[in-house]
Design a protein around this nucleic acid. Structure first.
Length: 258
DNA sequence: ATGGCTTTAAAATAAAGA
């Protein structure tokens, strides 16, 4: 079972790339982020025509997450995170697909820091920890996949100096991500690629792709029951270099079938 | 320091991203 996460940076603008990637790589499950589309404008029919059922959590203008499943309809379990009722950002959706619990996550960016956006990011991380703990208690195979907007370590960024004041790599952001992992989650990419750069994002600005100036912020965290089945994990880097590409590349894990 | 891109929303610029 191949499970991928892909921050598309605007799904309507990215449809040619997304359909091409689905056709070439045929993932079983896809977690999308940054749909940037109101519910009524989502390309539901085009995705279904490509052979994927889906659950969607859209929002006009920005944010927005979805879970796609090849040849079946994901069964929605949860949408949004508890703990902040006034929070209307579409950043979390969770579903069951073929016996695996899947969450599609778009964590707040948090810039500029310090400031209210950074405070929101840290509160959101705390709320995610609470939900993740509840999922672990179910003792099921589960994958928390998405754009975490956290650079976990200095090895995960092209230049520590260039990014030192960025919300993505502040000690508080990293500590919260570490606390989440230490609940019992396995970082699939780092498990399969223990050292060296494995970028998932390259900035449109300052020729980020051409200079290979990237960082690793898209993560797939596996519950113990999923980690036991880990076969491989990687990034579809070449898709970042294509015409009209997202600034993120698709990132994926394969799990052994039961 | 702010962002030299890119997308969305909406009708010219502004917000947001990371």
């Amino acid at each position: 079972m191949k499970i991928a996460t892909y921050n598309v940076n605007g799904i309507r603008s990215r449809m040619p790339r997304l359909l091409e990637w689905l056709d070439e790589t045929k993932p079983d499950v896809v977690c999308l982020q940054e749909l940037k589309s109101a519910e009524e404008n989502l390309p539901v029919a085009d995705i279904r025509a490509a052979g994927y059922g889906a659950v969607w959590h859209g929002q006009k203008g920005f944010n927005g997450v979805a879970i796609l499943a090849r040849g079946q309809d994901p069964v929605e379990i949860h949408r949004g995170l508890e703990g902040e009722p006034e929070d209307e950002h579409s950043r979390y959706i969770e579903a069951d697909v073929g016996g695996v619990r899947i969450a599609s996550i778009y964590l707040p960016n948090g810039n500029p820091q310090p400031g209210p956006k950074f405070d929101y990011k840290l509160r959101w991380l705390k709320r995610l920890q609470d939900r993740a703990r509840a999922i672990l208690a179910e003792e099921v195979p589960a994958v928390l996949a998405g754009d975490y907007n956290v650079i976990p370590t200095d090895e995960d960024v092209f230049s520590v100096q260039a990014m030192q004041n960025d919300a993505l790599m502040q000690p508080e952001s990293r500590a919260a991500f570490r606390t989440l992992c230490h609940q019992g989650w396995t970082d699939a990419i780092r498990t399969r690629h223990p050292v060296g750069p494995v970028w998932t994002f390259w900035d449109y600005q300052m020729r980020g792709w051409e200079r290979d100036a990237g960082f690793r912020i898209d993560h797939l965290l596996l519950s113990p029951q999923a980690a036991d089945r880990l076969v491989d994990a990687n990034v579809d880097r070449d898709h970042r270099g294509r015409e009209k590409a997202s600034d993120h590349a698709p990132t994926w894990v394969t799990l052994r079938d039961l």
